[in-house]
Amino acid sequence: MIEVKNLTKLYGDFIAVDNISFTVNKGEIVGFLGPNGAGKTTTMKMLTCYLSPNKGEIKLNNLDVFENSLDVRKNIGYLPENTPVYEDLNVIESLEFFAQIHHIDTEKRDKAIKRVIESCGLGEKLKNEVSELSKGYKQRLGLAQALIHNPDILILDEPTTGLDPNQIAEIRDLIKEIGKNKTIILSTHILSEVEATCDRVIIINRGKIVGQDTPEGLKLRSEAANVVYIEFEGKLREAEEILRQIEGVKNLYKVDCDLPKVHRLRIETENDLDLRKEINHALQKNEMELLEMRKEKASLEEVFRQLTSN
């Protein structure tokens, strides 16, 4: 479990993280979303005891990150940004080093190494120098290093950047699998990733949390969630008047259409109102033919842009 309270970090005068609070429960995968420079990486560096905040409190499994720094770190698996790995070691040597530092006994060490090699798909590359590995394999090694001691908490900073679509899918499956009984926080700016893997999303912009919800919940916040397109036959003026009288309709825009006598309209409604029925009734009452009606699909992209563009 991760508990963050009123966390603030300054770099000189620049406020990198501005008074943020959030909680991540056990068994939950939380996506940390935000544009570049929003403060994601800085927050993760503080969670892992690499940096100290100027203000605020972080508790991991009820242990304070500063008072019990070493104990906290025993339970963290951390994959830093850009997946740093030791280029001059080979895969086995790297994993052995991490196993040693985590005090995994010699008898259990081979088992632990075997486990992460299997789950991260490193089997073919055991004797390869890390510097010879492709980006995808380095990423897997980074994950294997983070998982070697079977930590309760995983902190992954952009775990899928630079991977090809197949590798991304594999890593996602892996994260989902691991996430069942661990606490995971991962940062990303790939939105489909959040939808695919995360139970909850925290959107951060300029150091502040601007949204915190499930991916579905966030989508509802999108302006797109309140847009209906219709295509009908009849008089445009008349139709516009009728539609404006429906309670909840905010705006109407004409959309170009090539067909004769057919008009297309974009109808913006007030939040969380589904007016499709009312629109249909109103048009029918006035003897206009409704040809098509479509509710615009909300996307996380749009919510993300709304929440983080200034």
Partner: peptide, 9 residues
């Protein structure tokens, strides 16, 4: 890698 190293227990 310094970040890896210094976040180990």
């Amino acid at each position: 890698t310094i970040e890896l190293l210094l976040t180990l227990p």
